[in-house]
């Protein structure tokens, strides 16, 4: 069954139509690549899902329409995302970036935290243990106490990925995780994505420009062009689709 169904969403900014009846879906444990030329509306689809924009149509997560929900309420349902430029919290170290994403799961209140009550301390310890697993999954354990601003760009983006995982999502939205990464970092990223899929079995939608990575990793590809859904299917079929080649890939 599909975790998320995006059902004919449309969105305009003034006279500019950025999404035109886009429909897609992703199932549990599935890695769906979302590709298309710049300005096709890929990130806009993410912003519609995560509650930053309010399109017409429907976005159903496990059957429930989530359009109009506030971003933190969408996150509370178990939908996490990364951002194109990492957007890690510069004032926090690596471990605390992940802990910030445990916000919903940690049940302490400011008063018990101020007083350092046993309940608050116990929660803190329990959730530190939780994020230790994710740090380990992404090979970030050694950098846990490092301020994120001390890290190279590629590592910061990896922290953004780990931070999204720390939320404990059942749907993960990855916004160009490989952009700006070196070849080596891309190989690592591919490994972490596959590992996440294997170990956590969550649904992922992945915006990507690296067609080699997409062809290697994706279970299915959805192509956007000028805010419309152009194609959807397994990598072999979609990447050889003449329409897709004309709109996006050019002559390969």
């Amino acid at each position: 069954m599909s975790e998320l169904v995006v059902d004919k969403i449309s969105l305009s900014f003034g006279g500019l139509q950025v999404l035109n009846e886009v429909s897609l879906s992703v199932a549990e444990g599935e890695l769906l690549a979302l590709i298309g030329p710049n300005g096709a509306g890929k990130t806009t689809v993410f912003n519609c899902i995560s509650g930053l924009y309010r399109p017409t149509g429907a976005v159903r997560f496990r059957g429930q329409d989530i359009i109009g929900k506030k971003p933190h309420d969408v996150a509370a349902l178990g939908i996490a995302r990364t951002f194109q430029h990492g957007e890690v919290f510069a004032r926090l170290n690596v471990a605390d970036n992940l802990m910030a994403a445990r916000h919903l799961a940690i049940g302490s209140n400011p008063l018990s935290e101020m007083l350092g009550l046993p309940g608050a301390r116990r929660q803190e310890r329990a959730h530190r243990a939780q994020i230790a697993r994710i740090l380990d999954l992404c090979d970030l354990t050694g950098l846990a106490d490092t301020p994120v601003t001390d890290l190279p760009y590629g590592t910061q983006k990896l922290v953004g990925f780990a931070r999204a995982l720390a939320l404990g999502p059942s749907l993960l939205l990855l916004d160009e995780p490989s952009a700006g990464l070196t070849r080596e970092e891309r190989e690592d990223l591919a490994y972490y994505i596959l590992k996440t899929k294997a170990e956590l079995g969550i649904a992922m939608i992945w915006i990507e420009h690296d067609m080699q990575m997409v062809a290697d990793l994706a279970d299915r590809i959805h192509v956007l062009d000028y805010g419309r859904s152009l194609a959807d299917g397994p990598p072999g079929a979609v990447l050889n689709d003449p329409e897709v080649i004309k709109a996006y890939l050019g002559t390969v």
Binding site: H72, A80, E87, F89, D96, A100, H103, I106, E124, R163
Partner: peptide, 24 residues
């Protein structure tokens, strides 16, 4: 603790904090 991290998060960028479940 939780509150202090949430303050740092909204201080850096509110939309990102919200997308990670923080009620800004």
């Amino acid at each position: 603790s939780r509150t202090g991290r949430a303050w740092a998060a909204i201080h850096d960028t509110e939309p990102v904090a919200a997308a990670l479940g923080i009620n800004v």
